[in-house]
Nucleic acid binder design. Structure first.
Lengths: 191, 191, 191, 191
DNA sequence: CATGAATGAGGCTTCATTCAT
DNA sequence: TATGAATGAAGCCTCATTCAT
């Protein structure tokens, strides 16, 4: 990803992320992106092939970052329970550090070439699924549909970030998700 | 002389829902909507103020329908557990019956007048929250953040519908969500 | 000019005149005309062939009315000076009685078929020209360009009505025009 | 890199003036303006906010030009009579040099924001009025309504240009107007 | 004759993309 | 590499006109 001026590329990326998160794709004008990033409009086309390419790059880069962090942190020597906890905490932390990413993923799967932008997301879901499968295989828990549960995790984070109470804290969110996965809503006495 | 026709409005609505669900807002052409609905382009503007108004109406109508079904089905004589189960099953059923709605809600919250279309969604979330609070109040379960949990429910359904395994069945999805809420992933010995 | 319902036709005409005088042609919607005239939109097409036909009719009818009044009042037994005075006073009176007409004539000559709507105006100008020529022929006055002077008269009235001081009275306007024609701005002593 | 080009703006202005003078506002297509000016359609919007803005600019610029010429030529050391003559000759000359302007002013006062474009016109009328008042003050002539007479002058020119004999010459027009202002139609014995 | 819902041609305008500088 | 003026395809929307009732 070494381009002529990596600094400038990142300035564009950061600016664009903000704008794309704030309004829907079709309301973001490249004029605005360029102005906000303090570069010429033509400059955008030096770093990105098109508006859609810029947009996809944002998502791709973001998801790739989570993926990298996950693959580094979630090693096979962790117990399945620890792996799941770490996965969730790491994703929640990431969501708070990159408040735009989950909002951005909003429309990602709807572009014409739907297939072309799933890979990064698929990888992420696949990774989570493996964590869940390991837990089921090792009988740490039971899950008839780990593939389904895997998509639940980003789904929960996204809905919390976008629609949840504004004052919810990172730790509270992670705890609540973990609580759900550990023992649902049931009374403490079940534990 | 013809009177404004509710049938025609619904034909447009149904057609538009399909198209808006298939591609992102900015890729849906009103020409196509009109053609698919077999009405003139101008006719759209008899029933809807603008493209965005049409889009918002779809969501609004859909969410309102869920709301109505919920308010009719979820009565206070149900036990909290039954109320939660019924809520989830009803929403999942609705999601399968209206495969476009959850897809549509994708971008809805990003339009300029964000505030203007949340009401319906807020109502829905508020309703779910009440169900959850009743359960907590009556000590059927414990939930430190019912407002957060409330947004989880549509979030789970949405992520399953959009990104889950294509062959997942309605019952399996509802069961999985219920399982999660009832006792998480745990076996007796979980952790 | 006997149509099915002459009352209704006149109501439309009167309403349309007001609207066309208030805004430029392209800003007057037939929807508005119909609503203001309290008739259905389709009804307009019973009385007029098209929007432009409606517009032209307004002018045509108005100019024809002036013409009729002029031909009745300005007879050959009048002295040229009296004829000119009567012509001017009559036109000014008409302008005050039909405040919209001169405003309406604004754009009349610019439509595609420019030639097709001049006739009424030409007749009017021609009539005034005859009055002027008679005065010149009978040596009541001198005018090297009676055809030019003829167009001056409606031009003066129009500019006074549209751009003149709002409080100018009918008599004052007629007097001022007559004064100009009689002895220009020159000092009273010339008289 | 190209800078916004005053030349290009003027090319557009000149072209548009021709077209707007030829047909009424609503029959002028911006496509045609762009094509005739040999610029892209979008280019129009770099220099003008909208079709109406383009139109108004034409008038405004034109009236401003007359104003400038007048303020430069009509100085207080001129006798009132000379000032009036110069004013009229200058305006007539301008009308012949810019055959479109008076035609353009046709509909100008009817747009929604009527107030917004009168300033230039008002200035012009105000200027003429001053010339007339000076003459009256210095007893060069008598005029009970200089404000009315002031609007007469552009009114006369306009009607002559638009409706007068096609072959009338610039000098003949100015002479005729001057004759009118100097001593009306009278022969020594008029009336 | 009267109506107003329906139509669709066509306009204005936007905005991603290009390219001369 | 960087710029932003220029472009023109394409969309939303309007509104004169039609026609079923």
């Amino acid at each position: 990803m070494q381009r002529p001026d990596e600094k400038k590329r990142q300035k564009i990326t950061a600016t664009a992320a903000k704008l794309f998160a704030t309004r829907p794709f079709h309301e973001v004008r490249l004029d605005d992106v360029a102005a906000a990033a303090q570069v010429g409009k033509g400059t955008l086309y030096i770093y990105f092939k098109s508006k859609e390419d810029l947009y996809r790059s944002l998502i791709h880069d973001g998801v790739m970052q989570i993926m990298e962090q996950l693959s580094q942190s979630i090693t096979n020597d962790l117990s399945p329970g620890d792996a799941l906890e770490k996965t969730i905490r790491l994703m929640v932390t990431f969501a708070y550090a990159h408040p735009y990413l989950f909002e951005l993923m909003r429309a990602i799967d709807s572009f014409k070439g739907r297939e072309s932008l799933l890979p990064a997301r698929r990888q992420l879901i696949g990774f989570i699924e493996q964590v869940l499968r390991r837990g089921a295989d090792q009988q740490s828990w039971t899950d008839p549909h780990p593939q389904l549960t895997a998509v639940f995790i980003p789904g929960l984070i996204r809905s919390a970030i976008l629609y949840g109470p504004k004052d919810i804290k990172e730790k509270a969110l992670a705890d609540q998700i973990l609580r759900l996965f550990r023992h649902g809503l049931q009374k403490e006495t079940f534990r």
